[in-house]
Each structure stands twice: as C-alpha cells, then as structure tokens.
Design a protein around this nucleic acid. Sequence first.
DNA 1: GTGAAAGCGCTAACAG
DNA 2: CTGTTAGCGCTTTCAC
Lengths: 348, 348
Amino acid sequence: MSTVPADGGRPPTLEQVARYAGVSRSTVSRVINAVPTVAPEIRETVERAIAATGYVPNLAARSLVTRRTDSVAIVISEPDRTSGTPFLNRMFTDPYVGRVTAGAQEVLLPRNIHLVVIPVDPPARHLVLRYLRQGHVDGVLLVSSHVDDPMPGLLGELDIPTVLSARPGDPVRASYVDVDQRAGARLAVEHLIGRGCRRLATICGPLDMTAGQDRLAGFRAALLGYAQPDPPVVEADFTRAGGEAAARKLLAGHPDVDGLFVANDLMAEGAVRAVRELGRTVPDDVAVVGFDDSSAAVESHPALTTIRQPVEEMAAEMARLLLARIRDPHRLSRAILFHPTLVVRASA
Amino acid sequence: MSTVPADGGRPPTLEQVARYAGVSRSTVSRVINAVPTVAPEIRETVERAIAATGYVPNLAARSLVTRRTDSVAIVISEPDRTSGTPFLNRMFTDPYVGRVTAGAQEVLLPRNIHLVVIPVDPPARHLVLRYLRQGHVDGVLLVSSHVDDPMPGLLGELDIPTVLSARPGDPVRASYVDVDQRAGARLAVEHLIGRGCRRLATICGPLDMTAGQDRLAGFRAALLGYAQPDPPVVEADFTRAGGEAAARKLLAGHPDVDGLFVANDLMAEGAVRAVRELGRTVPDDVAVVGFDDSSAAVESHPALTTIRQPVEEMAAEMARLLLARIRDPHRLSRAILFHPTLVVRASA
DNA sequence: GTGAAAGCGCTAACAG
DNA sequence: CTGTTAGCGCTTTCAC
C-alpha cells in the first residue's frame, strides 16, 4: 500500500488528508493520535485516506504545540583531559556503552520512544548543549564517569530531565543509578582469599573516575579484614593495553603477588595476557578477578572470573526514572544502587 | 552572564526578547540568523537582550518554517538474520563504527551540524523509519553492510537524502563511498607471496556482506596469477572469536598453510591467538595479514600487518556528499572508491 | 535598515 | 461524536 501521491515536492499535510477523506482536520488528528471518540466507519475512511496519501505527521508542527518529541538522547560524555586513545574509538570499543544502550532500548522501544546516541568530547560540547536546549529531545540519559566532567552540572543548569549512569563527582540534583562498587570489590577479595591467595594486589581504574575511586576504596576496605594493610596498587586506564602494562609493572615490582583484583574486564584481559607472557599461569600462579562481566570476560583466555554489574537492568531503570521525570517534572530525584554478584569462570 | 529570568515555566520567546530590546521580532530574528543588514548598535542591544533573557531559539518553530533541522543521523543498520552476539554489543565493540563517526564529525562539527547515532536492529526498524520520516534530521549516513539489509531500499523510498558507507547489495540511487576491496586483497596476497609464503589461505568475512564477498573475490583473483588455483577458505563473522575458531578449523584441515589473509583485523587477532595456542609462531610458521588497520591491529600480539582502509577520510567524504545533496536535492548521486594501502607490522 | 503581517502544520479547547 | 477556532514560536515577504 505504498501508494505515494503525485510527489509535488512537499509531503502531504493533515489538511490534505482531511479533504481527501471528506472530514475535518481535527478528525484526522484524532485518528492519528488514537483518540477513542471516533466513529468506527469514519476512522476507517480516514485510515484509508492516510494510506492513500502516504501521510506522515510533521514533527516540528506537532511538537511546537505539544512540547514533546517522544525521543530521548543517551549522551556519552568525555571530560577535558583525554587519555591516549581517541574518545570515539574508546567509546565504540568499550562494551559498556552497548549494554547501556541495549538496556535503555528495552524499555523505550515498547513505549515508542526514539533513542539517539550522542557522543560528546570537549570540541563538540557546545554544539551538543545547544542541541539539547533546542528541544530535540525530551530528556537525556547521561553516561559520564569522570569526576571532573562538567556535563552533569551543565545539564543541570539546562533544566532538562536527566538521569545519570553513575554517582557524579559533584552532587547534582539529577537522579542516578549505580552499582554498589565497594560491595563488588569485597566480593572479589573474598573470592581470592577463599581460593588461597596470600598476596593480593589490584590494578585500579583511573582515580579521576568515581568507579575507579570506589572500587579501590572497596578493595582496601575489604583487605583490612585480612591483615594485608598495604597492598600493591597500580592505576591504569580501563583499556586492554593499559591493563597489560599495569600487570607487567605490578609483577616486576611484586613478584610474589598471587591474586589480582582488576577494576574492569578489559584491563583484566590485558593483565591475563601479560601474566602468561611472563611465563606464569592463570589462575594457578596468579588468580585474576575482573569487574563488569562484559563480553570481554568470556572472550578472554582463560575466561574471566568477574564481578557482574547488571548493566542492562541498570540502564532500563535509568530509562524508567527518566520517563517518570519527564511525565512529572516535580518528581523528586533519587539514587538507586544495584547489587553486584560474583561470576566464577576460569581465571580465579 | 547566565542571568536566567524569572523561570515562569516556559522558556523565553523571540517576542519577549524583542520587547525587552524595544525592537520587533523580525529584528531579533535577523540578529539570531546573522543577517548583515542590521545596524551595529541595534544588533548590540539585541544581543544584550538575548543574553539577559537566556533566549534559545525553539527548534520546532524554526524548522516548521525552514524545513531544516541542521542535524543528520548516522544510522547503523543490522539485517534480519542476526548472528551470535547481540547487535548492540557488536556495534559498540567494532572499532569501525567509531572511526566512521569520528570522520563524519570532522566535517559536520565545523559547520555546526548536529550528529546523532542511531542503531537499528529489526525490532527497532519501524520506529527508526518513523523517526527519519518525521523530519528529525535533514539526512542520513547509512552504515549497512549486509547484502540483504532492507534499510537502503527503505530509505530510498523515504526520499530523504542518504549516503551509504559501502556498496549496497541491490543498487539504489543513493551515493556511496567504499574502499577498493579487491585491490586491498591483492595487496595482501602480494605481500604474503613476497615474503615467501607457499601455501596461502583466507578467513573470509560473511558472504552475505559485500565487503566479505569482495575481499574473497579479490583474494582469489590475485592468487590466480600465482598458480594456486584452489586456496582453502573458511568463512567467519568478523568477530575476534569467530576468527579464532576459523583459524583452528583451517589449520586442522590444512596444516601446511603458511600464509593467511584474514578479512578484518578483529578476526586476524583471533586467528593469531589460535595459531599461537596451536604451538606455532606468527609470522614465521604462519604469516597473517589483516584488513582495516583498526585499533585492534596495534593491540594484537604481535601487531598486525594489515590493509589500511582510510575509514575516517571516507566518512568525511560521506558527510560532504550528504551536505551537498541536502543543499541540492537534484544533485546526481555517485560512488567514490578509496585506495587501500599495505601497513607492515609484525604479523607478516 | 526596520516593522507588520502572513503562514508553516499541528493540537486542543470549545461549541454544536 | 465532529467541526471551528485559536494559537504554538519562528521566518519571510513586503511595505515603509
């Protein structure tokens, strides 16, 4: 039924459909918006007219009056001091972003809400803020992980409904969803201790990210209970290569380490590679626990024992919080923490 | 100067700015749109008023009359029969998408054109098409690689400016940019032969992708010149794990293979891993050439010799073609082929 | 160089 | 249950 009308340049309007069907604009509008109070036969006439003309509502006209666009953005933000790899490569290479998107889609799709992904690095920041202020979207899911990222604050000033993917560096009024990072680190430590490791160390994430800070703090706190007061710590950048380099450095300085808590799976994969290239085995010589339970955990050899973050469920919750906030702008914001779980595979 | 006015719910309008500045709506509009015919002092007054009121143009109202949104979408499409890994994970894990986005940003950002990324898998297809038809964006950069992907055709019917990232399965009227795949395969073969390989084989990409087809065809064609009529071929899915499994299978069936052309870097990385785990060395026992020169090529151990696709430059060209098409809808569409180059590293 | 007025395509009261 | 009417906020002729 793709009977497209004489393509006279412009697409058909409500008016034209109405004329075609011999009814008023309002009636067509009601049919489009599924308002129940329309006589069945008229509805059918109108639907035929819509099909015949190939009519599609004009978004600009509609949202000019409704003040809604039925779409939300997932904004992936990058703070000022960028590390080695180019931002877009990192963003499209870290399985985390895909999981967040998938989880959000899960709740948005059934509700017919469009989702667009917007990467933001410093040069694009200005343009993105404009995009958001212009009303392209009804709300934003902000993935921001650096403590010094200005985006959470900037979005706060914009007064557009926002939900954050993690605890922000500076408190803001937006809601956020996070995993209980310290509990995760504790699970890892207890597992390593439980399998007999005597000398634990950690490759922590960047300390300018809340996730990096919290996982390290959790690691140290958990270790306190086991009388290992000053465990070796090497910081890396959450990438595979970074984890690899960190593990090399760590084992060079502390050859006796036999248990490694690595703050994400990507780095853990790199660390495992380093350990093996140094001629030691995983998990027998060095046991390795990752964090995330991302696709990298399964792809690694041996497969990673890791702390599972229910990212998809968390993202779905973010979407729900956002929709609620869009519906009721006065809704109070809140923080929701999810519990991590230990997933045992081969690396520890 | 973020002097926000009494937040009376709605954002300030042109009308209010005009009143504040003591001029007409038209004048403010001219200032906003940088129309030259405005007296300098008046322009300044208006600018002050804009700053004072915190005015931001309403996109819906503007694009209702201009029929432009100054934004384009990069649509990442997934065809019906999806392979193992969930689409969003694959999409956010393949370095290719990031490179395309970065390349497009390079030309869009300076022109103040917004870029949004939209993933499309079959369940979302309908919604995305609606999004595009509603006029959220002025044009689309379509990343579609499967021959049976309906998106190129569907977008064609929509009559929205579109540029494709590769040769489409069925010819469509949209422009596309691609790399000369066959030339790339030839470079790889010549390099392997040149370093003394006697028995070549290939891990080809999915044959339901034009890239998979063309690289395999190029490999076979190039080999014809070297009297190796029927080289071993194993098909895999462009993922690391797929490449690994394929290499295992290949070497099991053909232990004499000493040169491997792998149709992308991700698979090549997996293949290298398999070769080494089988107790053979790279490149001495088996030389491996990848394709793409993505970040995976450098991360692999040993680093991959590979065929470089100038993805960023290609994406920039896509963006330029799209903008030209948006400016002039009657512009003829075209295909642009880029030349690949050989990048020699350690794996071959 | 500036203002007045019309209209983009749609929804939302309000009558009937 | 349906039609009429009045805008939503902006750009764009067209006079002045």
